[in-house]
Simulated scan of single mutants.
Amino acid sequence: MNHFTFPVRQARRSAAMDDAPIDWNEAWQAARLRAGKRSGKEVWDRRAPSFARNASASGYVERMLELMRPEPSWTVLDVGCGAGTLAAPLARRVRAVTALDFSPRMLELLRERCAAEGIDNVAPVLGSWEDDWAGLGIGSCDVALASRSLSVPDLRAALLKLDAAARHRVFVTAPVGDGPIDRRVLAAVGRGYVPGPDYVYPANLLRQLGIEAAVELIAVEGVRQYDTLDDAVERLRWMVPEPTPEELARLRGWLARELSPRAGGLELCPRTFHWAVISWVPARGR
């Protein structure tokens, strides 16, 4: 597995800026605003089926489980669990998983998966980062996890909420650079790309909060195999927020040129990117 310890980068500051320390929470909010980040539940309800397929096809789950090394006695809180990308495989290795998500469709897919695979120790909970977790019946846990779900306005509040919930360990993952965004897709439809905040922001904010976190990278490959041209369009359109009919037509045309027949389906030239896995011992364990 490709994973290694990686030093936290520092943000660039112009010579004209003073020596005041960066407020990494404010920097996170500004970067999200520039990139036009959206995280409404309606967006995720629409993305749920294709997201579930993409997440399970990348090799991400196996690498995360190797890093987490789950123990049979653990209780895990999976915040932003989606359709069970990690909640379901974790449930086979730990005592219980509380799976929190604000998308009803994601939780519906999670329930269907658990029923199909005979998993009975996952408790789906409809809720968000901003909700009162105690009011939702969520208590403390051994491990708190936020896997690719840090799309929040207030990063400091989210990190501290995870820290307060866990007894043993906290894991969060964030993209490195562009992460899963494929600039070829945006170029194909005629859109520019404004990078959003990546792992540097939570890693440095944790340091600013006095929390010593480990940062390791895992390499995953973007989805490369598709059943049909329609399947490829559906699984890649999420990168283009609110696409117009013209943009979808351009995406289809580009894919028709770029996809190659392979093993009964279609293949796109592979692209490898990285996720940063940031973990630390919470306050109750320090």
Rank of each mutant, 00 (worst) to 15 (best):
L67P: 06
L126I: 04
A116H: 03
M68Y: 05
G135I: 04
A27C: 00
R53M: 08
A87E: 05
E26K: 12
M17R: 14
A96W: 07
A27M: 03
G59K: 13
R32H: 04
K37T: 14
R12S: 12
R111W: 01
R105C: 04
E112S: 14
S140G: 11
A116L: 05
R95C: 05
A99L: 07
L100D: 07
V43D: 15
G137P: 07
C81I: 01
L86Y: 01
P49H: 15
F4P: 03
M106Y: 12
R13H: 13
A83Y: 10
W28P: 03
G40W: 09
L77K: 07
F4I: 00
S56Q: 13
T98N: 09
S58K: 11
E108N: 08
V125C: 04
C81T: 14
C114Y: 08
P7D: 12
A144K: 01
V8T: 15
D120F: 09
L145C: 11
L33R: 14
S39F: 11
F6L: 13
V97Y: 00
D132K: 11
A116G: 02
L107G: 00
R46V: 09
G36W: 07
P49C: 15
Q29F: 02
V125P: 02
R38S: 13
A57P: 06
G40C: 04
R38I: 13
E117H: 09
V61Y: 07
F51D: 05
E26Y: 04
P70C: 01
R9W: 13
Q10E: 15
A134M: 05
L86R: 05
V143F: 07
K37Q: 12
E71K: 14
L33W: 07
S58D: 09
V8S: 15
D23I: 09
S140D: 12
A123F: 01
R69K: 14
W28M: 04
L100S: 01
L107I: 00
A30S: 13
R63N: 12
A134Y: 00
E62H: 10
R13T: 15
L77R: 03
A27W: 01
I138M: 02
D101W: 00
A144C: 03
A83R: 10
I138Q: 02
D18H: 09
R38K: 13
N54I: 15
R95A: 12
D45G: 02
W133Y: 02
L65C: 08
K37V: 14
G139H: 05
K41T: 13
V143H: 07
A144E: 03
E112F: 03
S56M: 13
H3T: 12
V143N: 06
A11F: 10
E62Y: 08
R92K: 14
P21D: 00
P89D: 10
P49N: 15
G80H: 01
D45C: 06
V79Y: 02
Q10L: 14
G139K: 04
S39K: 00
Y60A: 10
N25V: 08
G137C: 06
G118K: 10
S128I: 02
E117W: 10
A52C: 11
F4Q: 14
D131P: 07
E130H: 03
Y60K: 11
G82C: 04
D23C: 10
D78A: 12
E112H: 08
R53S: 11
M64A: 06
